[in-house]
Design a protein around this nucleic acid. Structure first.
Lengths: 239, 239
DNA sequence: CCAAAAGTGTTTTATATACACCCATGG
DNA sequence: CCATGGGTGTATATAAAACACTTTTGG
């Protein structure tokens, strides 16, 4: 694979660099105050200038798909070090107005943050939207988001990926709020804690929360190594 | 959408008809004698002439992705009326030797049959292979097959799609064998029957098997309408 | 009458659910 | 000392697992 540089606006690419008709789009989920959010850009380019859209862009020749998603995310939002997973391709003939473009959706669960966000040259604004209070989206991006949300919900129940949304050290309440936000439900606190602790995936730390005006909660850490070992022995995460 | 005619060999398409670099591949699963099989073609064209491959071909302009999968399946195998679902895209830069080709995998579960199979002009042979006894496959098709198999296994546990593999009227033993083959496990007969019947998805018919040299089994039918209704009420199929 | 698969219930064990109060801390 | 969220256990209900024999049919 040829290393792709982060190149900014799509206007900087020569036509021969771009695989015609194939793009990647990024669905970036974050959790803020118990609410599931998704990162959107206000388009600064035609078509549909001024409307909100998922971050994304064309795939370059010699660029792996996942790398393309990472690069376009960086080019449009400034975000780095986001590990994304493919959802599926979306290829409706008329999904893009000017010509046929097949897009491949990638999603990520990340810690909610606004500090390293800066809209790239193709966007005039960038914003985390509550998943249940979305603006109008361009093209088929609403559809892509819905499919991805379902994908996320099914994934989050069968694999311990939810931890990606939390800081390395987190409280059980944070964890519960995460699952409640993503799955749009509520859990009984005692039962939730029992279930998760019985899995033995969480390391209890000798540390507690600081800076809270009430009893400080104990911190836990997710241990991917333990998960790997358990998985090899036939364990499956199920929420 | 423009209706696409079934056109046979890819050599019949003009270059401007074909979306460069995007293809669909079909993973067709069938069940024969309690064994999960997959349909493969022996390539009659370069590259990799003579090797086994998944049915597939290039996506045409103005052709929906799913339609492309259906059409290429028909062109290469003669099969019609196969409903396929997307797995994901595969786009490794070097997956295809001559140029970059991104492929989108679709899979189907169908009744095992050999009668309407006839290799198209791009294949010299067509064959159902046992999933645990596969030949060498071209390109990344082995990888695509593995990913799809996992996809199938996870899908089949959470949605009643397994019934696609059976004739409309089937016995509970056939159903159990199906799940055992797909999930590569065994179930206790009494528990399996109890579980499935309790879901109320199966209509018991007043008919039995014929032509067997032992007690004839009762026939059942899957009722998708009932499933829809139950699903709306919050029921989820879980095996 | 025999071979071959169909069909059937109960007990035990494990998991899921429901539910309410005291604890620790910072302000 | 009080407001705020942290943390805990038990009883009940439901679901999963284990297990073996009788029935029906065609040949």
């Amino acid at each position: 694979m040829v290393q792709t540089k982060f190149a900014g606006s799509i206007l900087n690419f020569k036509p021969e660099d771009i695989i015609p008709a194939v793009s990647t789009d990024c669905i970036i989920f974050g959790l803020d105050d118990g609410k599931l959010k998704v990162l959107l850009l206000k388009r600064n380019i035609e078509p549909s200038l001024g409307l909100w859209a998922l971050p994304g862009g064309f795939v370059l020749n010699f660029e792996e798909l996942e790398m393309s998603a990472k690069r376009t995310l960086h080019d449009t939002t400034g975000m780095t070090n986001v590990f994304m997973e493919q959802v599926q391709a979306f290829g409706q003939v008329d999904r893009f107005p000017w010509r046929r473009v097949i897009t491949i959706a990638f999603y990520a669960l990340i810690k909610y943050r606004t500090d390293d966000l800066r809209a790239g040259p193709d966007a005039s604004d960038i914003h985390w939207f509550d998943i249940s209070d979305l603006p109008e989206l361009v093209f088929d991006h609403k559809h892509i988001l819905n499919v991805t949300l379902q994908h996320l919900q099914s994934k989050v129940r069968s694999e311990p990926i939810g931890f990606e949304l939390l800081p390395p050290k987190f409280t059980l309440t944070q964890l519960q709020e995460l699952y409640e936000a993503v799955l749009r439900t509520t859990f009984d606190t005692r039962n939730f804690r029992k279930k998760l602790l019985k899995m033995n995936l969480l390391e209890q730390l000798n540390e507690t929360q600081t800076g809270v005006a009430h009893r400080a909660a104990r911190l836990y850490r997710f241990n991917p190594g333990i998960y790997q070992k358990l998985k090899e022995k036939g364990f499956t995460f199920e929420l």
